[in-house]
Amino acid sequence: MVKITWKIAGKDDITADIPIGNTLMEAAVDNNVPFIEGECGGCLSCATCHVFVDPDWYGTTGAPGDFEEDMLDMTEVERSPTSRLSCQITASTELDGLVLHVPIPD
């Protein structure tokens, strides 16, 4: 298990223990994190699991892959320099304590 925190502007943070090997999209859906839908099941087809990785953690999560890079142009909230699709990040021991910011649509 690793601890992941989702920060949601205007709401309480959600912190949960996530089994190693699960994607952070699955983790968000399991923990009812608002605005993270993951509609395509993690197949890089929908861009509904967009998160801003906290800048302190971006070096650890790493940059998006090629397909993910293209899909980040289709997110509801415009991408930032630390944007990722959370279906492409897998919980691992290095990510224990990771902080993600949830993009809030208008």
Binding site: C43, L44, M71, M74, E76
Partner: peptide, 19 residues
């Protein structure tokens, strides 16, 4: 199937994206 599917989908996906 992916990845062939993903490649094609990305070409047209933006025109149908939410924004």
């Amino acid at each position: 199937d992916p990845p062939e599917h993903t490649r094609t989908r990305i070409r047209v996906g933006k025109a149908f994206s939410k924004p």
